[in-house]
Structures are given as C-alpha cells and as structure tokens.
Design a protein around this nucleic acid. Sequence first.
DNA 1: TGCCGATATATGCAAAATCATGGATCGCAC
DNA 2: GTGCGATCCATGATTTTGCATATATCGGCA
Lengths: 158, 158
Amino acid sequence: MTARKGHFVDGYLAALLAQASHLISTEFHSIVRRHGLSVSEWRILATLSDGESISIGRLAQITLNKQPTLTRLLDRMQKRAQVQRVPHGLDRRITLVCITPAGLRTVSQLIRLAKKHEQRVLEPFGLARAEQLKTTLRRMIELHRSPAVERDSRARKS
Amino acid sequence: MTARKGHFVDGYLAALLAQASHLISTEFHSIVRRHGLSVSEWRILATLSDGESISIGRLAQITLNKQPTLTRLLDRMQKRAQVQRVPHGLDRRITLVCITPAGLRTVSQLIRLAKKHEQRVLEPFGLARAEQLKTTLRRMIELHRSPAVERDSRARKS
DNA sequence: TGCCGATATATGCAAAATCATGGATCGCAC
DNA sequence: GTGCGATCCATGATTTTGCATATATCGGCA
C-alpha cells in the first residue's frame, strides 16, 4: 500500500484511477518508445487502426489531447507519412484524419503486443473479474462523456 | 459509446482506464481551479493532507509527476506558503515536504468537495460494486508498483 | 443574397514539462 | 579513512503544451 492507512488519497477513486492508469500505461510505453512512437502518437494510431477516417476534434477527445496539441502532433505524423489529412466532403470546416499503410504496419505490431500485455495485466484477476472491471469502466465513461460527444457519436455513424 | 463496435481501443484496458480517469478528474478540476489551485497542486496538497512529511521523490511517484517538475511546483507552492521543505534528520540527500496550516485550510475544503463528488460518481453503481472497483484498482496498483516503492513503503513507515 | 452566431481547425506566444546533467550525500568494500 | 557506485534533489536548455485568438466555413434567417 501507499503506507499511511486511512489516508484520504488511498481510498479516493480519482486517485486510484489515475494511479492505475498511469502504472499500466507506463509499462507498455517503454515498448511503444522502442518502436519509435511517443505515447500520444501510439494513442492516435491505435484509434485510427480500424482504417476509418475521423475528425480532428473527435480524435482529440478520444486520445485525451487538446485540439492545438493534436494539430501539431498530426503535422509531425503526416510528415512521417503515418497519417493523412483528408478534407470532409460535405463540411469544409472539418478535416478528417486517417491512417496510412505505413502507419498501419507500425501500429499493427504494437496492437498485438498491447493485447499480450493486457492479458498479462488481467491474468491475476481472472476472466470474470476482468470483464466486470471493463464493464464498470465503460459505464462510468458513458455516464460522464460530454453530451456533445454522445450526440456526435450517434449522428455521424457512417 | 465510441461508435465503431469491435474496435480495438473500445475494449482496451489501458484506454478505458485513461478515459475514465480523465473524465472523472476533469470534472472535479473545474472546482479545483475555482479554489486557485492547478491540478498538480491539488494532488500534492491532497497527498500531504494527513500532515505527514514525505520525501520529494516519493511525492513525485504518488502525484504522477517527474521529479524536476515537482521540484518547480514545490518552489512555487513554498513561496505561497502552502508547503514547506524540511531537511531529513538522518539522510541529508533527502528533502522532506510537509503541508503548512494555510495549505491545509485550502485543501480541507477541497477534500470535502472531492468526497461529495466521488459519492455522486459512484452512486449509480451501488456501494458493493463501488467497493469492488476500488479493491480491484488497489490490487492492480499493488501488483504494478515498482519494487523500489514497495521496499520504500515498508522500510520508512514512520 | 447578405449578415450573424456557431463550429472546426490552425497558429502565435507564454507557460509548463522533460531530458540531461550537476552537486551533494550515502553505504559499503577495502 | 578512502574510493566508488548509487541515490536524491536542483537546474540549464530544449521541447511540448495550452490559452487566446485568427481564419475559414457552416446554417439559418431577414
């Protein structure tokens, strides 16, 4: 434990979530670095790995980046030909982003490794408990996602 | 949901943890800001709120900051008389940090608000499920905390 | 049509975070 | 004691981030 029993932060949900998220992510990030990606770049490519194009704003929400930060990351990744900006056909304010074949090759390896890593992380808890954890997290995310995103998610389903 | 069903990131534990952590924390952080603190400052003060002194390195781990970042944050907070640096009696490499009465006053209010916020977040899940979530997270943290910290945590108790 | 508020992305600049490293101290072998 | 690798915190230099705002486009309405 974090020593000091009964201390506020030891039982505070936000602290537990942040700590767990940080520890689990950090473990995998050393692997990500070895493949030449930063953490944000990995998140971006993983999000795009299904081949669908997606707006910059929405990508920012999913990858937990501010929009200006993401714009600059995309600039760099586009120079490396990992992603590509594509104009939206109907709304010219929107810039869509999609992954390139090169980006996909890179991220595919990492996704395989990520799945293995996840399996190792969840193994001590058993399948049932692991699924339960994920379900709880998904429900929590659903409950706290901003209304704008929900609308967006429903409206733009291809 | 995040649209696109069956997509890797929708079921990836690290992504779920990061999203949930981000959403829950962000909600409360608007309140934190209103009390004149940055997010990191809130984490630091909350960690110190039990009045115990703690080394800078350990504080960095708990608050998820890199050590140089924390040093600068502490500089600022010390100028505002929210925290205080205290030399370690036995090991002069170590600098301990503890909260000041002023810092404690600030953080006490926030802790009350944080508890209320947490209650609202967990309410839809019920007490049993909420406790189970926390238990799982704590165990996960325990399993992945670096060996150095475990040793530290046991060795330096009081 | 032309105007206006809203939305989506880009960018200038100041603040913040991070890497690499420095300086001090410690534990320990000899 | 002396030397040496390890540990802890501070700091200089650089990169990264994010706020505020600019630019472009949209939808609707007079």
